[in-house]
C-alpha cells in the first residue's frame, strides 16, 4: 500500500510576516485605544476641569483661568496633606526597600519551605487595600490584638493610642503601608538576586571575600536595577495612597493622616469644588512625575557607577 502524504500548502514568508504584523498592530491599537480612553482622555478632561469652577452638582461651569492653582498656594489643609504624603512616601519607600531587600536575601533559597515563605512574604501585596485596612484596624484599635498582647505580656501598663494619637496614627499608617509594599519589593529583589550568576560569588569566595564583602561588591550592585524599580513604584504608590488610610484612620484624628488623594476626594465631593480638586490632582500628578523622574535619573546613574 502506498501512502501519499500531502503537506499543507505553505504560505509565502512575506504573507506570514504581514499577518503577524497586522496582529501585533491590532493588539497595540487596542492597547492604545484603552490607554487613550482611560488615561489620556480623563487626564485632559481633568486638566480642562482644573481651569474651571466645575461643581459636581451643576452641569455647566465657567472658565476661571489659573485661579484654582493660585488657591492652592493659600490652602493650609492642602499643604498639610501634601507634606504628610511626601513624608509618608519618603519614609515608606526606605523602610519597604530595606525590609524587601533583607527578606529577599533571607529567602533566596530553592527548597520548598523557602518557596512557601516567599509566597507568604508576597501576601500583603495581594490583599486589597480595604481588607488590609480592616485587618490592621483590628490589630491597632484600643482593644485590638496588639494592645491586648502587649498588656498580657506586661510590656505596657495601659493601651497605646495607635490610631488616636496624631503622631502615632501617622506612624501606624506608615508601618501598614510599608508592610504592604515590602511584599512587592521582596519579590522584585528576589527575582534580581536569582539572576546573579553563582560563579560570581564562587570567584569572590576564592579571592577571599567574606559574606559582607560579597554583599557590598556583588549583591548590591547587581540588584541596582531592582532598586530603581522598587523605589520608583513605592514612591508613586504612596503618593496616590487612599484606600488603606480611608479604612484605617479615615484621615483622622483631626485630619492628621489625611493624604493628598483623600483631600482631593473631600474637596471634590464634600466641598463640591470639582474644578479645584482637578487642579490639585494635576499638581499631584506633576509632583509625582517630577519625583519619579528625579529618582529614576539618580538611580540609573548609580546603576552605571556601581
Amino acid at each position: 500500500m502506498t501512502v501519499t502524504v500531502t503537506s499543507p500548502p505553505r504560505r509565502a514568508p512575506w504573507l506570514r510576516t504581514l499577518r503577524y504584523d497586522a496582529g501585533l498592530r491590532a493588539l497595540a491599537g487596542l492597547g492604545l485605544v484603552l490607554y487613550a480612553v482611560f488615561i489620556v482622555l480623563p487626564l485632559f478632561m481633568s486638566l480642562h476641569s482644573s481651569l474651571t469652577n466645575a461643581n459636581p452638582l451643576y452641569a455647566s461651569s465657567k472658565f476661571v483661568g489659573l485661579a484654582n492653582y493660585r488657591q492652592m498656594l493659600h490652602d493650609d489643609a492642602l499643604h498639610s496633606a501634601v507634606i504628610y504624603t511626601l513624608e509618608l512616601a519618603f519614609g515608606v519607600t526606605i523602610v519597604a526597600n530595606v525590609i524587601g531587600f533583607a527578606f529577599a536575601v533571607l529567602l533566596n533559597r530553592t527548597n520548598l519551605s523557602y518557596r512557601v515563605l516567599r509566597t507568604l512574604a508576597f501576601l500583603p501585596q495581594v490583599i486589597s487595600g480595604v481588607i488590609t485596612g480592616f485587618v490592621w484596624e483590628t490589630i491597632l484599635t484600643e482593644n485590638g490584638v496588639l494592645n491586648t498582647l502587649l498588656l498580657h505580656l506586661h510590656v505596657i501598663g495601659q493601651p497605646i493610642d495607635w490610631l488616636g494619637d496624631p503622631h502615632l496614627a501617622q506612624l501606624s499608617v506608615g508601618i501598614v503601608t510599608a508592610w504592604v509594599l515590602s511584599g512587592f519589593t521582596t519579590v522584585v529583589y528576589l527575582a534580581a538576586l536569582q539572576s546573579i550568576p553563582q560563579e560570581l560569588y564562587d570567584a569572590a569566595s576564592i579571592d577571599g571575600a567574606g559574606p559582607s564583602r560579597r554583599l557590598r561588591s556583588i549583591t548590591v550592585p547587581m540588584t541596582a536595577p531592582a532598586t530603581t524599580i522598587c523605589v520608583t513604584i513605592c514612591m508613586i504608590t504612596v503618593m496616590k495612597l487612599y484606600d488603606i488610610i480611608t479604612v484605617l484612620t479615615g484621615g483622622g484624628p483631626a485630619f492628621a493622616t489625611q493624604s493628598a488623594a483623600q483631600y482631593i476626594v473631600q474637596v471634590a465631593f464634600t466641598s463640591d469644588e470639582f474644578g479645584y480638586a482637578s487642579a490639585i490632582a494635576i499638581a499631584l500628578l506633576a509632583i509625582s512625575a517630577a519625583l519619579a523622574l528625579s529618582v529614576t535619573h539618580v538611580l540609573r546613574r548609580r546603576e552605571v557607577n556601581l
Binding site: T141, E142, N143, Q158, P159, I160, D161, W162, L163, D165
Partner: peptide
C-alpha cells in the same frame, strides 16, 4: 475613657 480617639463608634 483612656484612648478615646482610638475607639471606633461600633466599639
Amino acid at each position: 475613657e483612656q484612648g478615646a480617639l482610638n475607639v471606633s463608634y461600633a466599639d
